[in-house]
Write a protein that binds this DNA or RNA. Structure first.
Lengths: 206, 206
DNA sequence: CCTACCGATCGGTAGG
DNA sequence: CCTACCGATCGGTAGG
């Protein structure tokens, strides 16, 4: 029963490949032009498809935006969170994540810089499912950082301090790094960020 | 000769009032919907004017965007920079600016949060005069912060440290505060920012 | 997955 | 500062 792929299975697989190819373009486009600037017409041109052919994959512009946010979240997880999870304990893990985060900025994993920082700024004054998806991804990120800080404090690897305050300060440094790299085109942001991370982790947070 | 206002003077004054009224709406609209989302049609509706009547003030959408950035810069200067300039010396001045900056975030001086953080994110991947205007405003801000840090170090009010690194870290905290307030709707960002400012200024920067 | 089409809105212009 | 208009593009639909 499972040996022979049916015609329907072949169609479904092709559809999934097509969808994946569209989303690979969409995340880069949205990171530079915004999730509203991601128009169906332009995306169709870049994916060499008809507008309505592309449209059929997502049902609405909002569906396309939600799928794009979800795909960006997978990429962020693969690039920043997953590599550090396998390696080491509390404090090593925290340093691993911070290094992976800087590397993600530096390599330009998304064509227009950090997808989620851009999407935060674009959607922070709106309501609706897209804003909720962006906020949900960011909440998970901040909670993850906070948990790593709590582990590092528990291991006495860094001075005692409020994990929430530590996570706020570490997150601030990362956001500013993306800003320096993208707007100011200042490559010094990377060493600056490293020095700032070290000071936060060495100093403890009230 | 200067006693009697000519008909032309009256017209010019009315034109300037109209322009100022348009830009007051434009900065708020752009801070929430973006400088591209600031469409001439919608702005005209909110200003109770015809599209072409509004258009005539600026000549092009880019002209409108540039005028909006300039007006936002004046507001930022009035709210954050000017108040602290009159009062006190080096370190007092630095604290005054940081407090005024937090107050500016907290009061929501622009309807959609910090105009320049939003515009940075929107235009960082483009070229052209609007990007240059945003970058120019941000460069002036960072240099101003750096100068205040250098003064505070020179006055021995804070431990010796690289003013550029100090300014990077202080700026990071402000950007993250806007992000916490707008996306995460987390009012704790204000006390968190105050604690972070104090730690940066107490610790010195390598 | 396509062609062909819809009404709405975009930035911008003509002419007054 | 207005009315009336332009071509282009938007999100989305019909029908295959």
């Amino acid at each position: 029963m499972t040996q022979v792929a049916s015609r329907a299975d072949g169609r479904r697989a092709a559809g999934q490949r097509s969808r994946a190819a569209i989303l690979a373009i969409a995340v880069d486009l949205a990171s530079s032009e915004g999730l509203e600037g991601l128009t169906i017409g332009r995306l169709a041109t870049e994916a060499r498809m008809s507008k309505s052919g592309l449209f059929a994959h997502f049902g609405s512009k909002q569906g396309l935006q939600l799928a794009t946010v979800e795909r960006a979240r997978e990429i962020f997880t693969d690039e920043v969170i997953a590599p550090a999870l396998g390696a080491g304990q509390g404090p090593t893990r925290l340093c691993g994540v911070l290094n992976a985060w800087l590397s993600y900025f530096e390599r330009g994993v998304f064509a227009g810089g950090c997808f989620f920082i851009a999407a935060s700024s674009e959607f922070d004054d709106r309501g609706g499912p897209v804003r909720d998806a962006v906020d949900g991804a960011m909440e998970a990120w901040i909670e993850f950082l906070e948990q790593l800080c709590a582990e590092a404090v528990a291991d006495s690897a860094i001075p005692a301090g409020d994990p929430g305050q530590l996570a706020f300060e570490l997150n601030a440094i990362g956001i500013a790094t993306n800003w320096e790299l993208r707007l100011r085109r200042n490559a010094d942001a990377i060493p600056r960020a490293r020095a700032a991370f070290e000071r936060v982790l060495a100093g403890g947070a009230a």
